[in-house]
Design a protein around this nucleic acid. Structure first.
Ligand SMILES: [Zn+2]
Ligand SMILES: [Zn+2]
Ligand SMILES: [Zn+2]
Ligand SMILES: [Zn+2]
Lengths: 160, 160
DNA sequence: CGGGGCGATGTTATAGAGTAACAGCATGTC
DNA sequence: GACATGCTGTTACTCTATAACATCGCCCCG
């Protein structure tokens, strides 16, 4: 699971893995990964680009053949975020699947402004620096958010 | 002792200083800090809590005695953000005045979930950690966003 | 088996955040 | 004055998210 995710990788594996991990985690925790929630999770994993709730909604409606209400998706997303299966990218109002649920999350992302891909990283140095500076100021950290906008390796090569 | 801003400070000074600095900076740059933009800047500085565009809009409408369109505020905010006079807090969809415009900005905030105050920091260690990890992955950083949710010193004392 | 509780889902309506397109106005410059 | 440029106003619209309330399904307990 490198940060270097080849552009031509077999993404069906990513999806299958994500669903398998989600099943295991929820079973272990006694959380109910219902059919609806599982389907929303799958739709979040459509790609490695953060997806808006309404994009997911549209897919879901189409797949179900009937129109679905926004709330349906938002509630599912809320559950998935609580379980750490999905992260919300604040600066994009969008959601992305977590590649390593169950592990500790610091919530750090490299977001490419060219291709839209977002890679989750968990760099202890960033987390340490945040904790240090917060401690120095007496600030109690609850949820650190790090979203780095920029350009990924692939896109740099394509547009030098 | 609080980070930099006692809860009982004279906030009129904060506002006056911010406007003075803005005047100077814009004059120096040849940017036009029009009456409208200046007023929006003042309204952003209403407090040290990030404010939503529509809250500012409401204040502006009331102050002007006539209803104003959202776009008016958004355009002013866009200008102010470009000039580095105001920052947008992504995780809150809200705007806050910059205490040190003109200087280099890394965009780091400690946001208290209890009182809503947001303190801008510019910790070189955080920035360095981000640059390092990005470099290791071949990611070119454009705009790093760090928004740490948690609880400020004052609020910790009040609710143990 | 028959409720009763509780969490998940459905429905409808509304709030909040942001933008597009176009017109008018105010500068300053030549 | 004529023009160019940039700021502001107006209208309408999209996207994001939540509130309030009804309903359904499932498990537990009697
Ligand atoms: Zn993949
Ligand atoms: Zn890219
Ligand atoms: Zn102040
Ligand atoms: Zn506080």
């Amino acid at each position: 699971m490198s940060a270097a995710r080849p552009a031509d990788h077999d993404h069906t594996h990513c999806i299958a893995d994500a669903l398998t991990r989600a099943d295991a985690l929820c079973a272990e925790r006694g959380a109910r990964l219902t059919a609806l929630r599982r389907q929303v999770l799958e739709l979040v994993w459509t790609s490695h680009r953060p997806r808006g709730a309404y994009a997911i909604l549209e897919d879901l409606s189409q797949r179900e053949g009937k129109s679905t209400a926004p709330l349906t998706v938002y509630r599912a997303l809320e559950f998935l975020v609580e379980q750490g299966l999905v992260h919300r990218i604040e600066s994009l109002n969008a959601y992305i699947g977590c590649a390593a649920p169950g592990a500790v999350h610091s919530g750090q992302f490299l977001v490419c402004e060219a291709c839209g891909n977002a890679v989750e990283i968990d760099d202890p140095r960033i987390r340490a620096a945040i904790d240090t500076t917060a401690a120095e100021r007496g600030f109690r950290v609850n949820r650190p958010t790090v979203e780095v906008r920029g350009m990924c390796t692939d896109c740099q090569e394509k547009s030098p």
